[in-house]
Nucleic acid binder design. Structure first.
Length: 546
RNA sequence: GCCUCUGUAGCUUAACGGACAAAGCGCCGGUCUUCGGAACCGGCGAUGGGGGUUCGAUUCCCUCCAGAGGCGCCA
């Protein structure tokens, strides 16, 4: 990664300064561990900037500009750095700004062509066994637009983690326990004894199953049966329409059948954490700063909390070292309890619960209580899966979002997803044309690609393309998926600008070859980024009918 | 009442504690007879209020105001 390299160079220089007693190395250590280089927002300053001097100035008791100057001098002695940078400058109040050398950019960009679909992979995960659990919606009806957000987010997070070197699995937990109140309530509805969960979809479903339901008398049996039928629809919808491939669907009822609930209960009891009160059995969470919780109800049936503990116990025993749950905002109160449970269970790995905030469509709020639920089926039908994915993923998970259906429906570059896809299709068009003219860029191997690139827009595009590995690494660390959308849009914009300013297929063959290299590299980066987002990268786009 | 999240341009959203706060929509105005114009460029325009920490705060802390969600022997 470009930025990592720069960090190392800065660190190296700083170490030499520390060695000369310029400042205390111990104080500087955290700065270099985290890295001090970042991409310049304003390219007029350079490509990358380091704030190390400013952060060091306190412990060094020296003017940051002075430190920056020293760092610059030290780096300029470095032979390797001489090849990488064309310019190193200091700027108040103490930035060190780096500009990449054109030749270096070109040689790095050559890797994009070489790596193709592997470009962007980084090795920060170390093959760690990782699980992302998401959606896990109750099998009592269709998914709603809120589920869509966590569905796409979880899917893309798993993609990013995989590309970053984690061994990531997707899992869906099915709340289908026969003892649960919800299955019984669903059963009552199925048998016409209640109206809970009775959406238009469910109404129709029950009607179509009338013959089979007529033979069932117990509400539990009816509920379980109906839940399985609904689940079939959910699985189909998720795979075909949402294009999400779960590695595992795990059933709560299965945990019961396999005796894991009882086993977990016994485990907790053995630890001396269970006590009786008001004819029920409780988990003592006082040591964990939490309220005590019921495990077994007065009537003897286990609570959801107990089965959730058992479920997480299972995750641990299946060997996951990094466990990520994506929950809806209505479950946030459950977060501290679950974290405490992981402590009780003795889990030493990483455990994270991401809370996905509410989604609204135009004015209508999506609330289970109020019942005005907008189904995800409807939304996908309206805007298509590509636009849906991109629009959901543009926003950070923790802020509420409003889905702009009308904009997402637009088949024009007003819509960011079309803007990006169009850039890809446009490149594909150019490459097709180039092949027709005989200079097939796919067939001949080139020893030194990108020779002849020199315009600002060309170099600027190439530099942007080199950022993909950083984007992946950053996102694998902080889970801010929206960065991918922003990056894709940025690459597309730079490509369009390049295309506008520079004729690719022109008279000068050498320049044409170099520009085709650049276009192809842009195509690879766009495709890889879209692939992370689960959005298709079309070779052709339908011409819009006016 | 307590806990969590959020408050950024007219609207929908970005921004590892960094430089002049970034995009899209909308509005206004330009470019180029284009290898796919579904393009490109420019303009208008924003950090809810008040303190604090810091060389530097949209970002961290406190407080007030506003919105959302949660506080079940529901899941």
């Amino acid at each position: 990664m470009m930025r990592e390299q720069i960090n190392l160079i800065i660190e190296d220089a700083a170490k030499k300064l520390a060695h000369n007693g310029f400042f205390d190395l111990a104080a500087a250590k955290p700065i270099f561990e985290a890295g001090s280089a970042s991409v310049c927002k304003d390219r007029a300053h350079g490509d990358y900037a380091s704030n190390a001097a400013m952060r060091l100035s306190r412990s060094a008791k020296t003017d940051p500009m002075e430190i920056a100057r020293k760092i610059k001098e030290e780096i300029e002695k470095n032979k390797k750095a001489k090849k990488i940078f064309s310019k190193i400058e200091i700027a108040p109040p103490g930035f060190v700004n780096f500009t990449l050398a054109d030749e270096y950019v070109k040689s790095e960009a050559g890797k994009i062509l070489k790596l193709g679909s592997d470009y962007g992979k980084v090795r920060i995960g170390g093959g760690k066994k990782t699980q992302v659990e998401f959606v896990s919606a109750n099998p009592s009806g269709q998914l709603h637009v809120g589920n869509g957000r966590s569905a796409f987010y979880g899917d893309v997070l798993a993609n990013v983690l995989s590309v970053a070197g984690y061994k990531a699995k997707r899992e869906y937990y099915i709340n289908d326990a026969r003892v649960s109140k919800q299955i019984q309530t669903l059963g009552a509805t199925a048998l016409g004894r209640g109206e809970a969960y009775l959406s238009p979809y469910l109404k129709e479903k029950i009607l179509s199953l009338q013959k089979k339901l007529a033979k069932i008398h117990s509400e539990t049996d009816a509920g379980y049966f109906l839940a399985q039928e609904v689940l079939k629809d959910l699985k189909k919808f998720i795979a075909k329409d949402l294009k999400i491939d779960f590695d595992r669907w795990i059933s709560e009822e299965c945990l019961y059948k396999r005796g894991l609930i009882i086993e977990t209960y016994k485990f907790l009891k053995k630890k001396g954490l269970v006590f009786e009160k008001d004819d029920a059995y409780w988990l003592d969470m006082s040591k964990y700063g939490q309220k005590d919780e019921v495990l077994l109800r007065k009537n003897g049936s286990p609570t959801y909390f107990l089965s959730d503990i058992a479920y997480h116990y299972g995750k641990i025993r299946r060997g996951y070292k990094k466990i990520i749950n994506i929950w809806g905002a209505d479950h946030q109160g459950h977060v501290p309890r679950m974290k405490a449970v992981m402590d009780i269970l003795g889990y030493k790995g990483e455990f994270e619960i991401l809370i996905c905030q509410i989604v609204t469509v135009k004015g209508g709020k999506i609330s289970k209580r109020e019942g005005n639920i907008v189904s995800l089926d409807w939304l996908i039908d309206e805007v298509g899966v590509d636009a849906a994915r991109f629009f959901y993923l543009q926003n950070s998970l923790q802020s509420q979002m409003e889905f702009d259906v009308e904009l997402a429906k637009k088949k024009s570059t007003d819509s960011p997803v079309f803007y990006v896809q169009y850039a890809h299709a446009r490149i594909a068009g150019i490459l097709r044309k180039a092949c027709l003219k005989g200079s097939d860029p796919f067939k001949t191997k080139r020893v030194r690609p990108f020779q002849g690139i020199k315009e600002f827009v060309e170099i600027d595009l190439a530099k942007e393309l080199l950022r993909l590995p950083e984007i992946v690494a950053d996102t694998a660390r902080d889970y801010q998926i929206q960065r991918l959308c922003l990056y894709a849009t940025g690459v597309a914009a730079k490509f369009h600008k390049f295309y506008h300013d520079c004729q690719v297929i022109g008279e000068d063959k050498a320049i044409a070859r170099a520009r085709l290299d650049l276009a192809m590299a842009a195509k690879i980066v766009l495709r890889n980024t879209l692939s992370l987002l689960g959005v298709s990268a079309p070779e052709k786009m339908q011409r819009q009918k006016e």
